[in-house]
């Protein structure tokens, strides 16, 4: 891991996860694609797993964020508290300002 020099997003920012379905090794679960949430924290910069998976070096490193999404925004008939959230890690190139 290394520090992110110029993060595009800061904690609290509203973001949307791209609703894309590119082929290949992606670490964005399908349930999260197209969902809106807020940046919970910046995790650091890591080699891009989408490149690492195919034998490349994954460089330059990509900023990784934790995104907090309301469960009711993912599952319309979610059973629980309206405050329940799901948090997951999303690389910057999958995030769009919301």
């Amino acid at each position: 891991m290394s520090e992110v020099a110029n993060p595009r997003f800061s904690p609290g920012d509203k973001v949307r996860i791209a609703n894309a379905n590119p082929p290949g090794h992606r670490r964005v679960p399908v349930y999260a694609r197209g969902r809106e949430g807020t940046i919970e924290r910046i995790c650091g910069a890591f080699p891009n797993p989408e490149e690492l998976a195919y034998g490349f070096d994954g460089l330059p490193k990509r900023p990784l964020y934790r995104v907090r999404i309301r469960q009711t925004d993912i599952w319309p008939d979610y059973k629980g508290s309206d405050k329940d959230v799901l948090e997951l890690e999303i690389y910057e190139h999958w995030l769009i300002k919301a």
Partner: peptide
């Protein structure tokens, strides 16, 4: 109870 907020963490990448 529903008064407790539940956070589910998907360790889908590097953490």
């Amino acid at each position: 109870p529903n008064s407790v907020t539940l956070r589910t963490h998907d360790s889908n990448a590097d953490m």
